[in-house]
Design a protein around this nucleic acid. Sequence first.
DNA 1: ATGTCTTTGTGAACGCGTGCACAAAGATGG
DNA 2: CCATCTTTGTGCACGCGTTCACAAAGACAT
Lengths: 254, 254
Amino acid sequence: MATGRTHRPATRSRGIPEATVARLPLYLRALTALSERSVPTVSSEELAAAAGVNSAKLRKDFSYLGSYGTRGVGYDVEYLVYQISRELGLTQDWPVVIVGIGNLGAALANYGGFASRGFRVAALIDADPQMAGKPVAGIPVQHTDELEKIIDDDGVSIGVIATPAGAAQQVCDRLVAAGVTSILNFAPTVLNVPEGVDVRKVDLSIELQILAFHEQRKAGEEAAADGVVPPAVARKQRPTDQGPDGDVPAVMPA
Amino acid sequence: MATGRTHRPATRSRGIPEATVARLPLYLRALTALSERSVPTVSSEELAAAAGVNSAKLRKDFSYLGSYGTRGVGYDVEYLVYQISRELGLTQDWPVVIVGIGNLGAALANYGGFASRGFRVAALIDADPQMAGKPVAGIPVQHTDELEKIIDDDGVSIGVIATPAGAAQQVCDRLVAAGVTSILNFAPTVLNVPEGVDVRKVDLSIELQILAFHEQRKAGEEAAADGVVPPAVARKQRPTDQGPDGDVPAVMPA
DNA sequence: ATGTCTTTGTGAACGCGTGCACAAAGATGG
DNA sequence: CCATCTTTGTGCACGCGTTCACAAAGACAT
């Protein structure tokens, strides 16, 4: 789950189911670890355990890529690393721009995982003129005015939005107009994009809320027959909280 | 998708499908925005558009919560905000600990979306003694030694892991042993947890890789009949790259 | 060669999630 | 009070994803 929505052809892209694509990076990570330990081959069972999935699922996933295993033996680690990397497009260089260099944007710029898989930070962009020129993670921040030029010059096709919610759609529109066709959105907003543009979102607040739901459920099961039964709040009654902290719908730190 | 794996009862928790639970925060956000604009009611069509989903899906989602709409009119915004909040468990206070105060941990601590929905940062914890006492987002960082005491004293049931990958499992074990039953994991590792503990993961690198896959596919379609056809790499042949950047499996900045 | 043993690759069944399309419910106007 | 119009709530069908279970494939020993 996470595609930003709006159009979604969703269905399998060139035979490979979306759910499988989402797991390939997981397998790749486990395989890379094995590769570093110079392990030559792994069985589906072992690899599945390392990736935290079911072995049947893993085998079916790999079957979409082709027959890369050897029966009775398992999979060749190096070979599989290469095949998955290629399938994911990681054998080429992906320049990425990060827009919105606040706390989160800076953290992303410093994130080692970016560089390690062919994702090169082409530019850091912020709307604040004060930020311009200031180096973050060794890269000087550039002003939003430069956005189109950077994207065009470097052939950037992936953009990361780490701005406050209010600025996200506007930034998104500019990215798309400039030629970006894949967006990773950290701002808590639904982005509208034209057909052909992929959006994936990461929302910390949403993840926590989902955890809270399950947490509440766990707690509620023990309490079973308690006086804590919902007080059947009268309809139309205004909820108790909501007042204090103004409650902006979850504004980004930016 | 995102549940950390391992056990997964996965199926619907008390009648509410997992997919629906994952969308409730989305609806809540849209509803809160409407509430701030003092909009009294919304139709499923309008709200669905604001949340970026299909209206039939939204109605079905709400039907799991009960019949909260009025035919011919729509849904009462305030009432729905309250019902969803209650369902998600947001009417109560959720103390949260963040472990690993590096770039990302600090960004999370500063993240406004945490506080705005009943999630209170109970403590920031880091293994580095140098960090101890240093205030981040107005909260003094505490040493890992204090972890168990904090969790016990404050009744913390939700933990956020923002440590490097190598430390994540260890931190996870301690959190769980101390009583935490829900974990939001930002470290690029598969966490093993006992039955009854929920794990959700957020992995920036994985999201980018998924985007890269689709991006490559888009690019490949235009090139259709090019000489760029996969050169049918000889089996067992060592992949070309892999050498340069040491390629740590995506270590956290932390 | 032949047999045994391991592990892959997949056919088939099942279940969850999605979306259509419509009947029921209520609002609103005459 | 009846007719009309809007919007909800849901029965139903379809498709994707998961899992089981097993036949086919290869390694390895004899």
